[in-house]
Amino acid sequence: MSINVSNHGKAMDDAPESTLRLMSVVAVSREAYALEPPHSYTVSAVFSRRVNPAEARSIQGPASHARLDEAGYGHISLVIDDRRLEILNTNLAELKAGLASVLGSLIREISDQTRLEQEKRDEAALMKSMSDDARRKEIEEQAQGISFD
């Protein structure tokens, strides 16, 4: 269970081609409010837009965890819940001390890389479609040139 801490005043951008970003912390686990809070808990941050499936796989995948580990945050787990990133096993001080910057860079890079890969797939599909159309026209022209008289 978490408690909302922000209404994420920055504007959301629903355009799927926009770079995915983390906007703000929107909730922290209830245990953070205890007189003696645990060292780590879950912090929720809101994304600037919906996360597409390829981005979600990358964000929650082993390469992201390895990158966090290299940056000294191997104890962190990332879980996507709709438009939120649940950052498990952290705290607000750790986020402020550098984890937020690492996560922001990671999310933007994944978004940019995913968009580039999609653009390449789209271009390859367009080129194949154009090639298929050209080949179809060539075959139709050859077929029309055949007479059985």
Rank of each mutant, 00 (worst) to 15 (best):
S64N: 04
M1E: 07
K10W: 04
D82R: 12
V28D: 04
K137R: 11
A71E: 15
H8L: 14
L78V: 06
L78E: 01
I76G: 10
Q144E: 14
S6M: 12
H65M: 11
D14G: 03
S147T: 02
E17V: 04
L99I: 02
R108D: 03
G104I: 02
R135A: 12
T114Q: 11
I87Y: 10
L106F: 06
I107M: 10
D149R: 13
A71W: 09
L103C: 10
R21H: 13
L68I: 07
N89I: 04
G61D: 05
D122R: 10
V26I: 14
S147M: 04
D133L: 11
M1V: 10
T42S: 04
R21P: 06
I139P: 07
Y33I: 05
L22G: 01
Y33K: 01
K96P: 00
N7R: 15
A54W: 07
V25P: 00
E119I: 07
L99V: 01
A56Y: 06
A32Y: 15
I3V: 15
I3H: 12
L92N: 05
S2I: 08
V28L: 07
F47S: 01
G74C: 01
A45F: 05
D122T: 13
K96I: 06
V79F: 12
R30P: 06
R135I: 07
P16L: 01
R115W: 09
V43M: 01
M127W: 04
A124M: 09
E86P: 02
S129G: 09
V26Y: 03
P62L: 09
K10P: 02
V46C: 12
L88K: 12
A125D: 14
S24N: 12
L78F: 08
T114L: 03
A125R: 13
S77A: 10
E70V: 11
S2P: 13
L106M: 13
V26C: 12
K120Y: 02
D122C: 10
P62Q: 12
V43S: 03
I59N: 02
G74V: 01
A32H: 07
A15K: 11
H39P: 03
S40G: 04
E86T: 02
A66Y: 02
E70G: 06
D82T: 08
M130H: 08
E138D: 14
R115L: 09
V25E: 03
R67E: 15
I107H: 08
D82Q: 06
R84F: 09
T42W: 02
H39Q: 10
H75C: 10
L78R: 00
K120G: 05
D82A: 11
S111A: 01
S101A: 12
D122P: 07
E94Q: 14
E31R: 05
S40Q: 10
S105R: 14
S64H: 07
M23S: 13
F47P: 00
Q118R: 11
A15G: 09
E123D: 11
D14H: 07
A134M: 07
A124H: 07
S105I: 01
